[in-house]
């Protein structure tokens, strides 16, 4: 089963809604609390990233019997240096974003930490697609 969400760049205060809604789906499906927590945290980070760095984007969540795949795609600036971005504390967030409490440089590292598999596909000036997998078994 597939669930699609749109992250609206015009409403940054609504960032986090998609992860909260998908979390509700996972609870209804009876996914284990541990996995729910991991997905919520990782997906929330991704949603925030989409608002800070890109102009919103789309999220596609696929639920399979053995795993959950979350694909977060944006048409943003792309990540210039993935290796750097994977390091804890490294951030290119604007001063405005930092003022809002974002940009601690934990986005990608946290997503890597909480997912079982993370794939980053990025092209400068085109966008970034993050694919995260979470094992159910």
């Amino acid at each position: 089963m597939t669930f699609n969400y749109v992250v609206d760049p015009e409403a940054p205060e609504r960032a986090g809604r998609a992860s909260t809604r998908f979390k509700g789906v996972l609870k209804e499906l009876g996914v284990s609390p541990k996995v729910i927590r991991a997905i919520s945290i990782a997906m929330y980070e991704g949603e925030i990233n989409m608002v800070i760095h890109a102009k919103g984007g789309t999220i596609r969540c696929d639920v399979d019997p053995d795993k959950i795949t979350v694909v977060m795609a944006d048409v943003g600036p792309g990540i210039p240096d993935i290796e750097q971005a994977m390091k804890a504390g490294w951030s290119t967030a604007s001063p405005e974003a930092r003022e809002l409490g974002f940009g601690a440089g934990m986005g990608l590292p946290n997503m890597k930490k909480w997912s079982d598999k993370l794939l980053v596909e990025t092209e400068l000036g085109v966008g970034t697609t993050l694919t995260m997998e979470f094992n159910l078994t």
Binding site: M1, L29, G30, P65
Partner: peptide
């Protein structure tokens, strides 16, 4: 958990 649709995952998916 009270939100779960069914105790069986596949059944929950079907109901959803």
């Amino acid at each position: 958990p009270a939100m779960q649709l069914s105790s069986d995952f596949q059944e929950s998916l079907r109901l959803m």
